[in-house]
Amino acid sequence: MEWISVAKKEIVINTSAEKVWEALTIPSLRNKWETKRCEIDFRKGGKIYLEYGRNVTFKGVIIEIIENEKLVLKDIEGYLTTWTIQSQDEGTKLSIEYTGNWVGDHDISEMENMLFRTFLFMLNLKNFIEDNYDQREQFWKSWLGLKMRTEIDRVKVVHVHENTPASGKVQAGDYIQAVNGEVVNHFDGCEIAITQQPVGSKIKLDIIRNNEKIKVTANTIRFGTLLK
């Protein structure tokens, strides 16, 4: 069975390492680009609680601190989150690395969703620091009810939520080739193409099912909701 142990994203921000460190470690600043509620007992062994909305939270402890360089967290399942900050000529490189054990389609889908979500917040941090702009309202506007993962260079549907626009049209095991005519070959691209559309948008999917090509059309609804 396929498994993944490390997942990583990085971004360069036009500011100092000290500014990035402050944005990561000061709760009032972190709330401006990532969380709705942030509690940090900032010491080795201290607890950290992050609340993002939509019932998404993180609970863990701090296991390593190197000021302006590295922050390592361990969640309640023992998985690690490592933030690394490196000064460069063009600014500061911020990296995040998740270390765990994701096995099978559903676990890998959850991992990719977590990594994608974090990367959007990292982009928002860049906007917040460079332009003093919070773009979280642009994230996750709508959905079709699909749970997906990347499989080599394809996007595989691993679950379809009941009472959503995709229910009865898309099946687990389908492969999404294109969204509104644009080829997608990775979770991130497919998720952006769907979830950043306004509610009520018509989405056209090119799908491979049992080696046959089919087309599916559905209208998005507000992210995380169900059809009435």
Score class of each variant (00 low, 15 high):
Asn55Lys: 12
Arg54Phe: 09
Phe42Leu: 13
Val20Gly: 01
Glu39Gly: 07
Glu34Leu: 13
Arg30Gln: 10
Asn14Lys: 15
Arg54Ile: 08
Ile40Arg: 04
Phe42Pro: 11
Val12Leu: 15
Leu29Met: 08
Val56Ser: 11
Thr25Lys: 01
Asp41Cys: 05
Arg43Glu: 14
Leu50Gln: 14
Ser16Ala: 09
Val20Lys: 00
Trp21Ser: 08
Glu39Lys: 15
Ile48Met: 05
Pro27Gly: 03
Phe58Lys: 09
Ala23Lys: 02
Glu10Cys: 08
Tyr49Met: 03
Thr57Trp: 06
Arg30Trp: 01
Gly60Asn: 06
Thr35Trp: 06
Lys32Ser: 13
Leu24Phe: 02
Phe58Cys: 10
Val20Tyr: 00
Asn31Cys: 06
Ser28Gln: 12
Pro27Tyr: 07
Asp41Ala: 09
Thr25Val: 09
Val20Ala: 02
Val20His: 01
Pro27Asn: 05
Phe42Ala: 11
Trp33Ser: 07
Cys38Trp: 07
Gly60Arg: 09
Tyr49His: 07
Leu29Pro: 01
Lys59Gln: 10
Arg43Met: 11
Ile48Gly: 01
Arg43Leu: 09
Ile13Asn: 04
Ser28Ala: 12
Gly53Glu: 08
Phe58Pro: 09
Leu50Ile: 13
Thr25Glu: 03
Arg30Tyr: 02
Leu50Glu: 15
Val20Ser: 01
Gly45Ser: 11
Glu39Leu: 14
Ile11Lys: 00
Asn31Gln: 11
Leu29Lys: 13
Phe58His: 12
Ile48Val: 15
Lys59Ile: 04
Glu22Val: 01
Trp21Arg: 01
Glu18Trp: 00
Gly46Glu: 07
Ile26Ser: 00
Leu29Asp: 02
Asp41Phe: 07
Val56Leu: 13
Ala23Trp: 03
Gly53Lys: 07
Gly46Ser: 06
Trp33Glu: 04
Val12Gly: 13
Ile11Leu: 14
Lys47Trp: 04
Leu29Ile: 05
Trp21Lys: 01
Glu51Asn: 13
Val12Asp: 15
Glu34Ile: 05
Ala23Leu: 03
Asn14Val: 15
Ile40Met: 14
Lys44Ala: 09
Pro27Gln: 06
Trp33Leu: 07
Leu24Arg: 01
Glu39Arg: 15
Phe58Glu: 11
Ala17Glu: 13
Lys19Asp: 14
Lys32Gly: 02
